[in-house]
């Protein structure tokens, strides 16, 4: 019983990860808040993260694949892996200047 319980805990820990996301500009308006957490499958790529985000907030679909993702101030590529407890930033194409 105890072993089974411990087994389920460790299984759930390896199957999913949780990340914190800060969003900006039009994406922040679509989602309605500047920060949120998101549960993802472990081994999730940056591209899959964006798909999950749009699935959770269909209002963000207008940006879909054009969303940019950064971790620690550096841009991620679509194939980069997302890690448990990552603090990500996500936003639409930039338009400064």
């Amino acid at each position: 019983m105890t072993a089974c319980f411990a087994g389920r805990i460790s299984e759930s820990m390896t199957d999913s990860i949780q990340v914190m996301v800060r969003c900006f500009a039009g994406l922040k308006e679509k989602i309605g808040k500047p920060e949120f957490s998101l549960v993802l499958p472990s081994g999730c790529s940056c591209a899959a993260f964006k798909e999950q985000l749009v699935a959770s907030w269909p209002e963000a679909a207008v940006y879909s694949s054009r969303l940019l993702v950064a971790r620690n101030g550096s841009y991620l590529n679509d194939s980069d892996l997302i890690h448990d407890r990552d603090e990500l930033a996500c936003f639409p194409p930039v338009s400064g200047g």
Partner: peptide, 11 residues
């Protein structure tokens, strides 16, 4: 380059 990658937006 600034126009391409610096995270600033205008409305």
């Amino acid at each position: 380059r600034i126009k391409e990658t610096v995270p600033i937006w205008k409305k």
